[in-house]
Design a binder for these strands. Structure first.
Length: 280
DNA sequence: AAACAAACCTGTGCGC
DNA sequence: TGCGCACAGGTTTGTT
């Protein structure tokens, strides 16, 4: 579900509502959510701490704590973070609840039907051991910024299909299945093309599309699909799904060229939608 | 190096 | 209406 724009939208919501609040109590109802460590580790790491800031690297959401530790939240496929009133009825699959101080007091819910998501408190000075994926993450186009030259260097010598490269979090962090397809369509590049085969103008277009698609999607609050799984911390959906040109539009006329139908195929085990006429 | 499959889970939508 | 299967925004691991 959530890719860079959705995670960034959640981050902004947390930044707005969490900073300065203290955790008074922690409930862990599903051990799988804290599987990297334990319920005790999450409870010990969060109880009594105050939130001081937030950041994001790829799809990894980080909340800074006044203890010096950080809370990492990964939503994976179906995770949601919701801010709510104390005592409110919790949705099914609410696995972690943080009781927050403040006037008025709030609760932060971690809801995740498929349970792929996770929460962990870690020591940033020991990240290589406690959260090794984080230190292996590729460049984040928004948080780090990415130059055209940097992108060109990342593609050089890589013969993998460009769609697979965009999805590889070790190369570029944050792009998922929706935005990879949308970026390639706007770039007018076939998802099957080897990364190393892209011409100079194609790399220029790809670079521009990565930044413009992600920026526009963030401004739209992300993409909320028909199952309304993804919502921000206030429970509101995004609107970038209205701007999708290819994702989940197989069989429909391409809105860009109006002369071909969107085709669906598989790349790296992921459904891939593209316009065979626009994207060569 | 790169492509593919399977694994982790639950829910939904579709064909029959 | 009910059943079974395919498939879903992610990531890791293992096999060709």
């Amino acid at each position: 579900m959530p890719e860079l724009p959705e995670v960034e939208t959640v981050r902004r919501g947390l930044d707005q509502h969490l900073i300065g609040r203290q955790v008074e109590r922690v409930e862990v109802g599903r051990l799988r959510t804290v599987r990297r460590t334990s319920a005790a580790a999450l409870i010990d790491g969060l109880s009594g701490v105050t939130f001081t800031g937030t950041s994001r690297r790829g799809k990894y959401l980080l909340v800074y704590l006044d203890s010096g530790d950080q809370l990492m939240i990964h939503l994976r496929m179906s995770g949601r973070v919701l801010l709510s009133e104390p005592g409110a009825v919790r949705p099914p699959h609410t696995h972690v609840v943080l009781h927050l101080s403040g006037e008025p007091a709030k609760e932060l819910w971690f809801v995740d039907p498929r349970t792929f998501g996770e929460m962990v408190v870690f020591d940033p000075d020991n990240v290589a051991v406690e959260l090794p994926e984080l230190s292996k993450l590729g460049i984040d186009p928004i948080t780090d910024g990415i130059s055209r030259a940097r992108l060109a260097a990342l593609l050089a010598g890589r013969g993998r299909q460009i769609k697979a490269l965009l999805l590889d979090q070790h190369v570029i962090a944050g792009i998922g299945n929706i935005y990879a397809d949308e970026i390639l369509h706007r770039s007018r590049i076939s998802p099957f093309r080897p990364g190393s085969s892209l011409t100079r103008p194609e790399i220029t277009r790809l670079h521009a599309a990565i930044l413009s698609i992600l920026t526009e999607a963030i401004e739209a609050g992300g993409s909320t699909l028909s199952d309304t799984q993804y919502v921000d911390v206030m429970g509101d959906g995004g609107s970038f799904q209205l701007d999708h040109r290819v994702y989940d539009r197989a069989g429909q006329r391409c809105a860009t060229c109006a002369k071909a139908d969107i085709v669906r195929s598989m790349i790296g085990g992921r459904s891939t939608s593209y316009c065979p006429r626009c994207q060569q």
